[in-house]
């Protein structure tokens, strides 16, 4: 689907900061506020803007640090439905945060979040690897998130410029 320049602009701004107010969006794009509102509704209806969300650094919240694992899954595709059916069986679990079909050495990349390594291990051995079409799984635990969804988790670098310059 082709978007207009203004629509693209709005999508890009919101992807960086979903809390940008309609008034500010209007000012930044040079649209009227009601036009901006209509545009937003359209983008939402079309599911181009799927959800407004926040990037949370859970590692900072005591007791909620959790663990994330990325699992390479090899599967046997099924006649007629290919990988879609098995992907659906996997993504319906609430522990599963993302499922991607991959090119290369394995088929599905599955991201799991759990409270502990044990919990993730249990999910992999009891649920994931026992699914009919699953041939093998390789689990990689994430040790530290440096950058997530384009956001660097380190404190922002301070402005090093001098305050007034020609």
């Amino acid at each position: 689907m082709q978007l207009t320049e203004k629509e693209l602009e709005i999508v890009e701004i919101l992807e960086k900061d979903s809390r940008t107010s309609t008034e500010d969006l209007a000012a930044m794009t040079g649209l009227a506020v009601n036009e901006t509102e209509e545009l937003l509704h359209r983008l939402e209806d079309l599911k181009i803007i799927v959800r407004y969300t926040s990037v949370v650094d859970w590692s900072k919240i005591s007791g909620h640090e959790g663990v994330t694992a990325m699992i390479d899954v090899k599967v046997t595709p099924k006649r007629g439905v290919g990988f879609d059916e098995i992907a659906k069986r996997i993504y319906r679990y609430k522990e599963v945060k993302s499922v991607y079909l991959m090119s290369g050495a394995y088929d599905l990349s599955v991201t799991i979040e759990g409270r502990s390594m044990n919990e993730v291990a249990r999910f992999v051995s009891n649920k994931l690897s026992t699914l009919d079409s699953v041939i093998s799984t390789t689990t990689h635990f994430i040790l530290k998130k440096y950058k997530h969804d384009g956001t660097i988790f380190e404190p922002e670098e301070e402005d090093k410029r001098i305050v007034v310059s020609p």
């Binding site: 410029r161 001098i162 305050v163 007034v164 310059s165 020609p166």
Partner: peptide, 14 residues
């Protein structure tokens, strides 16, 4: 401006 705390600078040419 240099000595002041909490300044928002719109004075920067870079």
């Amino acid at each position: 401006a240099s000595g002041m705390e909490g300044v928002i600078s719109l004075g920067v040419g870079e």
